[in-house]
Every structure is written in C-alpha cells, then in structure tokens.
C-alpha cells in the first residue's frame, strides 16, 4: 500500500514541534522511507533557519539616549505650553476685568441680577466691591500692560533659568 506524502501543514507543524508524540513518530517513520518528503522537510528547515536568524537588527549605540532626549524634550515642551496657557488665561482675565470696569455699568447689571437670583446677586456684589476697592488703591490705566510685561518677563526667566538648564543636563 502506498503511503501518501506529508502535507505542507504536517511538515510545518512537525518542525514547529506542535504535534502530539504519536504523530511525530509516524512522520519520522515516514521520512525514513520517503525521499521526496525528506527533501521537502530539508527545504522547510532552510526556511525555518532563515526565519529564526536574528540578523543585523541592532539599533545605533546612542539609541537609548536619543529616545530619552526626545521624551524629555516633549515633557519640557508640554510644561512650557502649559505655562504659556496660564499666562494667556491671566492676561485674558485682566483684559476682561478692565473692560468690565471701564465700559460696563455695574449698577444696572446688579439690578438685573437682583431680579433673577439672590445667589447671583451676592456674587455680583462681591465682584463689584472687589473691583471698586482695587480701583481705589491703584491707577488702572497702564497697569494691565505692566502686569502683562511682568508676566512675560517671569515666563522668560523661568524658561532660561529653570527649564533650559534642566533640559541640557538631561540624559
């Protein structure tokens, strides 16, 4: 009786060593008597060897350093971006306050608030008194520019004295 040749899947599973021992034994027995299947196994072995070969896949020596620098740069960049956001939010608050104090009639606004809600009215009164007290103490014209300048200067100093040196000393 002629024994059928081994299929590709059988040979691959045999070389992967994933077959049950009984199947492995019968394949081994078949290979001893079938030159064609033996050749097929040999060529598959060449393929497996090529696939198993850990060829020149290595990265450059300073790869780790490059990655660390990149992650650090991103972290510093995110921090600078965050500081810039804080600065712009502060600048926007100052500008809005200035517009409110200069152009909005707070008495009318408070009157409207009183008609709608008690809690809101209290809040408006609090804000109004805060602005009035502040307005009594300092001259508002030009103060916003000074504050903005100080803010920018602070940001610049923080960047030069804290962030840049920290970045330079990083890995």
């Amino acid at each position: 009786m002629l024994t059928p040749h081994l299929s590709d899947d059988q040979i691959q599973a045999f070389l992967d060593d994933t077959l049950p021992s009984s199947d492995k034994l019968s394949i081994k027995a078949h290979l001893q008597s079938c030159a064609e299947c033996e050749r097929a196994v040999a060529s598959y072995q060449d393929v497996f060897e090529a696939l198993d070969c850990d060829e020149n896949f290595d990265l450059s020596k300073n790869f780790t350093r490059k990655v660390l620098r990149q992650t650090h740069k991103q972290a510093v960049g995110a921090l600078q971006f965050g500081l810039l956001h804080i600065f712009f939010i502060l600048a926007a608050v100052i500008a809005v306050s200035h517009v409110l104090l200069t152009y909005v009639n707070i008495e009318n606004f408070a009157g409207t608030a009183q008609a709608t809600s008690g809690a809101f009215e209290t809040l408006v009164i609090l804000v109004r008194s805060a602005f009035e007290n502040l307005g009594d103490k300092i001259q508002f014209d030009g103060i916003y520019f000074i504050l903005a300048f100080i803010g920018l200067l602070g940001l610049f100093v923080l960047d030069r004295l804290v962030l840049k040196p920290h970045f330079k000393t990083s890995p």
């Binding site: 850990d54 896949f57 290595d58 990265l59 790869f63 780790t64 990655v67 660390l68 992650t71 650090h72 990083s170 890995p171």
Partner: peptide, 21 residues
C-alpha cells in the same frame, strides 16, 4: 525615574527592532 525608562528601553529595544526592521 529616567534610569527605569532606560532599563525599559534596553530590555525591549530588540523586540521593537525586530518588528520595525
């Protein structure tokens, strides 16, 4: 901890290189 991340890179760089290459 930067040193821990360095160990992480050294441990897995070969795996990543295999896939990417």
């Amino acid at each position: 901890d930067t040193r821990a991340f360095k160990i992480f890179i050294e441990t897995y760089r070969r795996l990543v290189a295999h896939i990417v290459f």
